[in-house]
Nucleic acid binder design. Structure first.
Lengths: 340, 340
DNA sequence: TAAAGTCACTGAAACGGTTAAGTGAATGTG
DNA sequence: CACATTCACTTAACCGTTTCAGTGACTTTA
């Protein structure tokens, strides 16, 4: 029951391991005769040989592995992604990678606070980092000789490939739409706004819309917390407490919008008659929500596809850093109405 | 800018690579002097050495990799898990694995219809298979010498470790509760019911409850489709069309319950006044739903933890196959009322 | 017909580690 | 003092591939 290796195949076929290797790597057509190729292939089939990718990587210094780093979304929580967004993204990344012969090495936050350790010790061919993660520095990634793609992360220098959406425009569109419906006091509800994160851009978009309409921005309208249902639920109460007379909110994530709807309803407010809400992402949750959430749609699986494609391009020699921004669109549903 | 290897460290510290290897693998305390250990460690630090896990695996035949196979949930769809359930599970698996020094090799459905290829060619130390996947045969996994854990998959022979929940009891509890509220015509809504899957067990639980209450089971009350919001939406219409007078439904997944609520509301029915619904899973979506979904709760992250633990136990010599069943509980919310 | 090419392979050195089996010096034993 | 141990390392084989640099047998070429 010993593992069958290339040597066994070679012996079976009566050739050298080199020949077997050539046949297996399609270099055969150039240099190996059809007859020998045939003989090797049947030996492979007979012995049910499967190459050891580990050994292959060692000698060819190519692992066909893409590291995917998904940082914790909620600090303090041990789990990284309860948000369905990640499942969908990962799903698309996995599918695209597999189609191109790559496997995924999934990793959460490294305990050594380092993005690059997986790359260095597993020798992945490329790294996809989803979302920024303030406690980890991106600097060390520069020295790495593997391509790095940052998803949903804003960095100043174009030292990495990046793929994201137009978060700022999305924020602006959401807010503009509320303004067009006559709302003047619009809350902004989001998770933590960090330097490199998407929330900040959405926030900037919110401000853009306010400014362009000549509306004042008040800190009183800002609700920052965590991207979760419970936080949003509590925001409803907080709004009542503050009493700033908001008639609408832009929730920078659908789950927040959904929580807000629920929280407001508990307080006896009707959506959209008494209060309007626009979400962000267009997850299933937006349609489950009642009333369904008007939201900014993004194409999550396209994001995943592009992330992988950027790695592949880089691996094929594409040198200059790419920065791709996918479009967003406003999806009209039932959570927004004209100001009462 | 050459990669620094164990040889470089050895040279720097003035010892053999064996010594370095011993120091790095904690075998040091036994046989290597404190002074040498110290010297090696500082060489490691100075050169910023990181071991190549790939090479390590090759010679030690231990990869510290756990393969996670997440089959497509919806055949025909290219993506494997839009369902938030998977994200949460994966999250927990990743966290637990990482805590024990393992990385995750994530894989969707293999094109060669084989579960074992990742194991064979990447040499993973263990495999976690989530959900059954009818087109793939489990048989080949027997021959594999690595531990296999089946999550949410029912197999007759105890040839693999399994971890799941009491799906049948869950289905029964959900249905019993509806019966206690006076419902007599209860629909069953689910995805495809396959031999090894969880849906079949939930269905059996539904029947158990019906039988024990002396209620007849009618095929007319059964709605099978895909586990998705849109299918559930359509079920509402189908119910009206069939006109079998159901006053309640057990939806074998929260997303189905949520879709049903939405679909019924569109048809002008009120939940729970006109129609009661019980879901399954207790995802966020159950709380987003309005009215919030009464549902059967399962502990998804516990499932993930156990899956990894079973692999680790097996790796430590635990021979006999384990079968763990986690408990479920009924969570009362607002989608069920007494029959009108 | 001798030199120069092809053709169809093969030998052996990597790749970066682990580990079984030494080895020489210092210490312990009778 | 001769011998057996222990201590602290080292030598070298090996893990399963890839790949560079041959190699011998046939063809061309001039």
């Amino acid at each position: 029951m010993k593992r069958v290796g290339i040597k066994d195949v070679a012996k079976e076929a009566g050739v050298s391991t080199t020949t077997v290797s050539y046949v297996l790597n399609q270099k055969a057509s150039e240099t190996i005769s059809a007859e020998t190729t045939e003989r090797v292939m049947s030996a492979v089939a007979k012995l049910n040989y499967v190459p050891n990718l580990n050994a292959r990587s060692l000698s060819s210094r190519k692992t066909n592995l893409i590291g995917v780093v998904i940082p914790q979304t909620e600090p303090g929580k041990e789990f990284m992604f309860s948000n369905p967004f990640y499942g969908e993204l990962l799903s698309s990344v996995e599918y695209t990678a597999r189609k191109h012969g790559y496997h995924l090495l999934l990793s959460g936050p490294q305990s050594d606070q380092s993005y690059s350790s997986i790359a260095r010790n597993r020798g992945v061919d490329g790294i996809i980092i989803v979302g920024s993660y303030p406690t980890h520095s991106l600097d060390e990634l520069h020295q790495l000789s593997v391509p790095v793609v940052l998803v949903d992360t804003y960095v100043k220098d174009p030292v990495f490939h990046t793929i994201g959406i137009d978060d700022r425009l999305g924020g602006q569109m959401a807010t503009q739409y509320l303004i067009r419906q006559g709302h003047r006091h619009i809350a902004f509800v989001s998770g933590a706004v960090s330097e490199q994160g998407v929330m900040q851009k959405r926030f900037l978009g919110y401000m853009d819309a306010l400014n362009e309409a000549g509306l004042p921005m008040s800190e009183q309208h800002l609700y920052f917390g965590t991207v979760g249902f419970d936080f949003a639920l509590s925001v409803a109460g907080e709004m009542a407490r503050r009493g700033n007379g908001e008639t609408a909110a832009f929730a920078a994530a659908d789950i927040l919008g959904a929580g807000l709807v629920k929280g407001l309803r508990r307080l006896g407010k009707r959506v959209p008659e008494d209060f309007s809400i626009v979400g962000f992402d267009d997850l299933d949750i937006a349609r489950v929500c009642d009333p369904s959430l008007t939201t900014i749609r993004q194409d999550i699986s396209a994001k995943g596809r592009h992330a992988v494609q950027l790695i592949l391009d880089a691996l094929e020699g594409q040198k200059e850093k790419q920065e791709r921004i996918l479009p967003v669109s406003l999806v009209l549903r039932d959570s927004v109405g004209p100001v009462g």
